[in-house]
Design a protein around this nucleic acid. Structure first.
Lengths: 152, 152
DNA sequence: GTTGCTGCAAATGATTTGCAAGATA
DNA sequence: TATCTTGCAAATCATTTGCAGCAAC
């Protein structure tokens, strides 16, 4: 399912719809993001790409991410640290995030039951839900243990 | 429960702990926010306050909101429009938001079942959850009806 | 050849901060 | 009097944009 033909199809459509040309640099950024299939801050993405293709500029990374957002292949997501991150859209659609407040680790999860309950709640208020965002903040196992040790 | 003595107690503690003095302007902003008991962007809060106390500056509003955040009486929350909002802490702790993508209306809700399921999921991954954030985006009843009318 | 893409530097917008003057303790 | 608070303007930070030169069609 992931990064399926439909991803590339959507890109092609977007390209022809907006009269875009193909460019090696932009393609590289887009591919890198899609293949990595995980969260990035702009800085993280730029730094990783710079190691491989040092001539790609910050602007190009920004512009590629904006393109991905516009054609629905990436979502902006802002966790509690107020830093903007981008995540592959197929991931964003049906999952929540577990975020460790100490080490910053981010785990994704899915849960149909929660989703069904969300829809019920929404209906009660006359809403129809199209997307949702669920973030659970706390401490992961490692960090809880690390905290314990420090206290001893 | 809301805006109980403990709110003012926490403010007093924070004041003495950090050697703050009492100032009419800062108190006004803090009071206004706490009594209003709802979400604000900085701009919204500033604009409303300016009507009543025109001599209060943007900086003062910013500084008051930072103070409230630091002593745990307000939370920053960023919905999908990427605009920073502040909300009273007692509200943030146990509820989700329903957000209409068309008119921007924000409704709060609580749901124990969802919370319990969240804790279960977290446990499965070794996490202990301290706070959570649940946002459901969609269309409210009014906006769905408005959309229908336009289509006819 | 026309139009899009890129890097750079400059612009923008939100937020923070330094500082001098005013207010509180 | 000593220290905190305030408004203003300047600084900062992330992000966007104008433009001249390069690249794709």
């Amino acid at each position: 399912m992931r990064n399926s033909d439909s991803t590339w199809q959507r890109l092609t459509e977007h390209k022809s719809k907006h009269g875009l040309k193909t460019s090696g640099k932009r393609s590289f950024v887009i591919n890198y993001f899609i293949e990595a299939d995980r969260h990035f801050t702009v800085e993280e993405l730029y730094d990783e790409i710079k190691k491989i293709r040092p001539k790609i500029s910050y602007s190009t990374v920004y512009r590629a991410l904006r393109l991905l957002t516009h054609c629905g292949l990436a979502y902006e997501c802002t966790f509690a640290d107020a830093v903007v991150r981008y995540e592959p859209a197929h991931q964003a659609e049906h999952h929540g995030h577990l975020i460790c407040r100490r080490c910053g680790k981010i785990i994704e999860f899915e849960n149909d039951k929660i989703e069904r309950l969300q829809k019920n709640v929404a209906r009660k208020y006359g809403f129809r839900v199209s997307t949702h965002k669920l973030e659970l903040y706390g401490l992961c196992k490692k960090c809880r243990e690390a905290n314990k040790e420090r206290r001893q």
